[in-house]
Design a protein around this nucleic acid. Structure first.
Lengths: 234, 234, 234, 234
DNA sequence: AATGAATGAGAGTTCATTCAT
DNA sequence: AATGAATGAACTCTCATTCAT
């Protein structure tokens, strides 16, 4: 007798599986590029205002001055548009945080300037950093993003410490990577309190104290370092 | 010193603090007390597992083995039951983080032990701390909670630094409150990486490095401090 | 240095995975049972009117006189509520289609009565059968459902044919299972045309012709069968 | 005899037959003709793969290698392009199903060959037939299409039966139109099970059984028919 | 003729909260 | 006190169709 089977005799079974709509990475027309760019900018503002979770697609679209559905023309998910934003931010933060002081200055001043530069950049991007900070707690994607953004800073700081160690200025007893991570964490934590949580600090006192702590922690003192010619450490 | 402001510098998001229905703070019957307690415990587990936002009232009720509606008999909002949980946590964390080492030991060892004790407690409560950390970014209620939990630690640390300064062991140049805040932030940032984000560290190396950085930062060296009789600083 | 790993040191990684809402199979209160039942009835009517695909959850809820969300209290998906409907239909169809004629009557009459009974039941359930028929084309779930409903009819018919064969009344040359399947298909196809596609037939002529074709096909003739005492074949 | 009605007995669902925009029936340029043809082919493949409902215009356009908008240049609706496909199919199916056997062979063999030919064609077009079958349930447009495709087969079969009746070979008691419709339905139902639902059959046994049932049903036996010279019945 | 960007109505689903029992 | 049924606002995502270029 006739037996029913799992697979029909036809080339392939008839099953309807909807394909995921593909997003358009780079629109071909000028109008498209304008719209896409407007969405990215609008997304940034929306995320800054509402955070990631509370940012609705409709908020972004409204902010961009486009219709609802156009978002899905260019992006599949909120995550995707955020990723776009962060590729920009990540690079900008690192380059902008390079200390502007002459290479010849003493280590203490250099640390001071590095902190000053970092805080300036962090202040500008505080709200977006807060978004990552918030999401990183639960979403692996964001945790990775956070650690990824941290990475180059850690490397630069570790290299700086190593350089000072090799020149006998900094405590050679310290693991430079760990020290860089911990001291970097100190600054990071501070920026969170200052720029995101709204704790009030006197700028100069804060930067000075921060720098003293950092410098002393690795064994650099304002006095000892003043008379030493330094080489660039980053 | 650092002052916390009532309103954050960022436009604070909507928080709905309903005041309409009145909740029952302390049930009169034994059964009522049992139910309430079951809800609080269930809420803690649920928040740890799902985070605050993703914890549904129904999850908590299910975990507590009660019905949907009973939650609203005892609590007005999710925020309220969380507050309940944290009054417990806050106290526990502070007392449990008191260093267990004899008061007579040297400052460096005391800092080490304080860090060790703090990390032990932080590890136990990591998940809940993560919940606050996450929520503090956008919700003033949680930001206040976070700063509130921080406060006693800062005070203890600041007092410790002041004590060392007055005895000439620590750098008297530093603002003790700021230093306490920044170094506390260093440790906090580290616990977040270690216990919440899952970054791997070698425990002993990490604690030693952390303590060295802390001690050096305020001018305490293992050598200089060893021969000095200390007074309890907390 | 610190290395980030996929798995954090905490008991299990922090990931939020929403649980699927569970549906309530049997409500505990009378009110609940009433509502659930109203939904099932409403769903049947809605499916009959609109088909499965075009039946919106809101249609069903409206038809049941309940709110939107209550559907999800009792059912997870449209498929689930449909399954409920069909467990009822399936049984009803088979029992109701049992020929009511005395066992003593001749084979031809018995076939006639079986067809008459089947057509009566099929007419009542035509719209729902149409729903399965429609969905069976693309959805394996429905194809299985369709074949499952067919099955008992085929078995009964095959048994009937076997019985007639063993008594020398029907052509013993035929595979009784295949014959049952094909002749059953003939009737099925006819009911689809008649009850669903709205092709017009004269009832008596149709049933008579259908029965003649069936009977002749398996070798039963009105004449030859008249004088033979039959045993029940189902 | 069976008459098809304009309006079905069931409340017919909404069909949107837009008449606003005018489509271009026959493009004047070669390029236009190529594009149009590509669309038709793409539509056929898409409908076979996804079914009518799940086939998006964008799927068809993508398959044809053209842009979204061009579809609307040539066709008003999905229904329209499907109609185009079926005008081709319908004709092909009928001519291809003409039995290839010599007119001189006996009625039984001729029925066998007719079935064999039909099954071969049905197998090739199974997927598209499934599409109609599916849509015919709810959409009058498709129901009409289905009955329209059936029509010539019914006429051919009815003519064949009439011819056999007039020559005394087939049961003259039967309404030839009804018989043709019912027996045709039997074969149709079988092809649905076999080619679309994936029920497994042994090809030769199935065809033989099918033919026996058909022949006996109208009173044609292999023996009685062998010695009679037949006239073409289609 | 062709392109692909833009629109927006519509359906599904979730869940905090209320309320009748 | 407790239950769990009911409500409905809010948000996501899809895709046929239009239209400017």
């Amino acid at each position: 007798m006739a037996r029913r089977t799992g697979s029909p005799p036809l080339p392939s079974p008839i099953v309807n599986r909807k394909q995921s709509t593909s997003s358009v990475p780079t629109p071909s027309t000028a109008r498209g590029r304008r719209t896409r760019s407007a969405l990215v900018h609008a997304a940034r503002e929306t995320f800054e205002q509402r955070g990631f979770r509370d940012a609705r697609i409709s908020d972004i679209a409204a902010q961009a001055g486009t219709s609802y559905g156009v978002f899905y023309h260019y992006f599949k998910t909120k995550e995707e548009i955020l990723g776009e934003i962060f590729t920009v931010i990540t690079g900008e933060m690192f380059t902008a945080s390079r200390p502007s002081v002459a290479a010849a200055s003493d280590p203490f001043s250099r640390i001071m300037e590095a902190n000053r530069a970092y805080l300036a950049v962090a202040r500008r991007n505080a709200r977006l950093i807060a978004v990552i900070e918030e999401m990183a707690i639960r979403e692996p994607y964001f945790r990775d993003l956070k650690l990824q953004i941290r990475e180059p800073f850690l490397r630069r700081n570790a290299a700086g410490i190593r350089s000072l160690q090799s020149r006998g200025i900094a405590d050679s007893d310290l693991d430079p990577d760990l020290a860089a991570s911990f001291l970097g964490g100190m600054v990071e934590n501070f920026t969170l309190l200052w720029f995101v949580h709204g704790v009030k600090y006197d700028e100069e006192t804060a930067i000075t104290t921060l720098t003293k702590l950092w410098a002393h922690a690795i064994g650099v003192s304002p006095l000892s370092a003043a008379d030493i010619t330094s080489t660039p450490e980053s």
